[in-house]
Design a protein around this nucleic acid. Structure first.
Length: 716
DNA sequence: TATCCTCGAGTTCC
DNA sequence: CTCGAGGATA
């Protein structure tokens, strides 16, 4: 009943979703709280699957209290999710003074500005806390959301309301105003809190940042109220009316509206002024009374910010200049090798635990063979070219304040009889040969799925967040089930309920598993029988096909058979080709069809062909697919006049650079190509346009000049 | 062919 | 978060 007779009109769908939500809620209540099920498991399951199917068809109608959000939800998930209307992105990083000049240069280059044109930036301390988005409608605080993964955060409104720096009401505010800033705790308050915690025999916090995070994420807002949190506003999201024309003026406006803003925010007219302010802030760092981890520079002119726009994950108009990382010395006790899902052998340093930047570190990555030997990927020396050995006295830091790495080694403390580390040439997990391809930095186990490490890592990838994201089936459970022999390939996951009818009993008898958790797991698994094509593809774990590539492929191919058909034909072409160079292969129909997809090159095509045409892999995929209903991806809808069109820019552009024109067009949903072909929808020709404009005319393709193009996209 | 940008795959600790 | 490398571009 899941797929059949789905409602056609949104109205019917909404009505049915509401009914299902109530019925499922009732059944849940009866089952969990009164311990007296009113309906059979099968009926319950069917209702939830139908709910999921309707939601998939009408994603906009998904209810905030949707049962699909609740199934298998861990008890810790006490906060509702909030999707940010504008994603909360992170910033690019600068570590050296030269990086600041480089930032200025790249901004000018993108805008097509000279080195001397006047360009101002703001510089402000980067507060080491956690970012928060506050949404005000008609001056009233509607909700507060943490950053989360950038797209979706947690609703912590009740807690935010208890923070003195966050006004519940604003006067004279825009109709819609989303203020963004940083929640933090001062050194003084942090020390007092820890003292209080210690006296009460409660746990103390490692640093103010953790204390702030822990306090904001209290399920009981009254506890948050007792915690001395503060807030600096530094940015904004959705707005009904612009705050100002410059960053500086916008910050002033936020201050006038009643928000605390950082007093060390300064307008700088050149990279040297920015650096001077950076060093001044660095000197004041210890006396500020709160933690900061660097300085943020932003292009001051908001119109320029808009033009600069965003790369995939960071804005082009801002950068974070980090202070040098804290360092600590410790003993390197051992070097272990981990095997990843692609067979990559990754060395990890086991360290005598040491505190670095408020966190105890006992492992550090050693990347690869060359990194241990003291060379980077280009053969250039790192750590003065010194290698790292077992028993060495090493200096550790946390790159980007996160990933522990080895900065230096003290040769004077090295024992005379110590030996260089010998990187294994056989896989420590399965004994297969571990081979390093010519020109590759990484040594890989050749065992494939024979290697238990690879098999397990591949399964972990399959259930990971961007893939099938099965609630209650994380890395740990996968490992356990693999060892039990219950799950050896993805399809096995979807057979668990039926195949282990008796197994459920086994599951329930195991520590940590009860009736509820076992059933929740099976429910969560069933939920994922409806899966988006891109998630499915990503989950297969084909080399070089990550999240982005999987989406590109899913947008291009209607379904799995369509993709497999082209890949099969490409495989035949490869087998029959006499000239197997990438250039020659590109001329072949199927091979060329795959290469024509944006972001797909010959390495990825080879990978698709080798992986998807292997017999056992294909059978495994078929077994999996037969358990699923794979949802095709619709092209992203957009109202802009150029959405989905292929545009070619030729000749010189006068009001913007090529890069800016491309970024702008892509943000409106257009695809920008370098050459004119039958697939081209529109050519924008500036002065000096030559053969491309002529070809466009020959093919009868619409051609605009720069002003015509700007008029077309105006207002979009 | 060289250079820039983005992505994939690896990593730690809470 | 970082490195290496794939893909796009000039």
């Amino acid at each position: 009943m899941t797929e059949d007779n789905l409602p056609i009109s949104p109205k019917d769908a909404a009505i049915e979703l509401e009914k299902l939500a109530r019925a499922i809620e009732r059944a849940n209540d009866a089952y969990f709280n009164k311990d007296a099920p009113q309906i059979s498991d099968a009926e319950f399951d069917a209702m939830k699957r139908r709910n999921a199917a309707i939601e998939a068809k009408f994603p906009d109608l998904k209810r905030t209290d949707s049962p699909s959000e609740k199934v298998g939800a861990a008890p810790s998930e006490g906060f509702q999710k909030i999707t940010h209307s504008i994603p909360m992105l992170s910033l690019g990083n600068a570590f050296a003074d030269e990086d600041v000049d480089e930032f200025d240069r790249s901004v000018r280059k993108f805008l097509g500005w000279s080195d001397t044109a006047e360009l101002s930036y703001t510089a402000e301390p980067k507060i080491d806390g956690l970012s928060l988005a506050l949404r005000y409608e008609n001056g009233r605080l509607i909700h507060a959301a943490t950053r989360g993964d950038g797209a979706t955060g947690e609703n912590v409104t009740a807690n935010a309301m208890t923070i003195g720096d966050i006004p519940a009401e604003l006067t004279d505010a825009p109709e819609l105003l989303e203020v963004r800033g940083e929640v933090y705790m001062s050194h003084e308050d942090f020390a007092a809190l820890n003292e209080r915690q210690a006296k009460a025999n409660e746990k103390t916090f490692a640093n103010p940042r953790n204390a702030a995070a822990g306090s904001l994420r209290q399920l009981n807002a009254e506890i948050t109220r007792g915690r001395p949190l503060r807030f600096f506003a530094y940015s904004w999201g959705s707005l009904s009316t612009p705050l100002a024309e410059t960053q500086m003026a916008a910050i002033t406006r936020l201050n006038e509206l009643g928000f605390s803003v950082n007093p060390l925010t300064k307008l700088c007219k050149s990279p040297s002024e920015m650096l001077a302010h950076y060093h001044s802030i660095e000197e004041q760092r210890a006396s500020l009374g709160y933690d900061i981890d660097g300085v943020v520079y932003k292009v001051d002119d908001l119109e320029l910010q808009r033009r600069l726009g965003f790369r995939s994950t960071t804005p082009r108009w801002a950068i974070a200049h980090k202070f040098p990382a804290e360092l600590a010395w410790t003993w390197l006790e051992d070097i272990d090798i981990q095997v990843g899902r692609t067979g990559a052998l990754s060395p990890v340093a086991r360290l005598k635990p040491v505190t670095v930047g408020g966190v105890v570190v006992s492992n550090a990555t050693l990347h690869n063979e060359d990194y241990i030997a003291g060379r980077d990927g280009n053969g250039a020396p790192i750590r003065n070219g010194n290698d790292v050995r077992k028993g060495d006295w090493v200096q550790v830091y946390r790159a980007g304040d996160v990933i522990p790495k080895i900065a230096d080694v003290d040769l004077s403390k090295r024992k005379p009889d110590s030996q260089p580390y010998v990187f294994p040439s056989i896989c420590p997990e399965c004994g297969s040969a571990a081979i390093r391809e010519e020109g590759d930095a990484i040594r890989r186990c050749t065992g494939g799925l024979i290697c238990p490490a690879q098999a397990i890592e591949k399964l972990k990838h399959f259930v990971s967040r961007a893939a099938f994201d099965i609630e209650g089936l994380g890395a740990k459970q996968v490992e356990q089930f693999f060892e039990d022999g219950w799950i050896r390939e993805p399809a096995d996951i979807f057979h668990m309920r039926e195949r282990f009818g008796s197994g459920v009993q086994q599951l329930k008898n195991r520590e940590g598993w009860g009736d509820k958790s076992a059933d929740n797991l099976f429910d969560a698994i069933d939920q994922r029988r409806d899966i988006a094509f891109n998630r499915f593809l990503f989950g297969l774990g084909i080399r070089h096909v990550g999240e982005a590539a999987a989406k590109d492929l899913a947008l291009h191919f209607a379904d799995l058979p369509a993709l497999l058909d082209v890949v099969d034909r490409a495989a035949i072409e490869l087998a029959e080709a006499e000239d197997k160079t990438p250039k020659a292969l590109a001329e072949l129909p199927a091979w060329g069809a795959l290469l024509s997809i944006d972001g797909v090159g010959h390495v990825m095509v080879s990978s698709l062909v080798t992986s998807l045409t292997q017999d056992h892999e294909r059978q495994s995929i078929n077994r999996l697919a037969s358990e699923l209903s794979i949802q095709s991806l619709d092209a992203p809808s957009s109202d802009s006049p150029v959405a989905g069109k292929t545009v070619v820019f030729t000749g010189s552009l006068e009001k913007m650079t090529r890069a800016e024109a491309k970024a702008r067009a892509e943000s409106l949903g257009a695809k920008v190509s370098g050459s004119v072909s039958a697939k081209t929808d529109l050519v924008v020709a500036g002065p000096g346009a030559g053969s491309k404009a002529k070809k466009a005319a020959d093919l009868g393709i619409e051609t605009l000049d720069e002003d015509g193009w700007l008029a077309l996209i105006e207002g979009a």
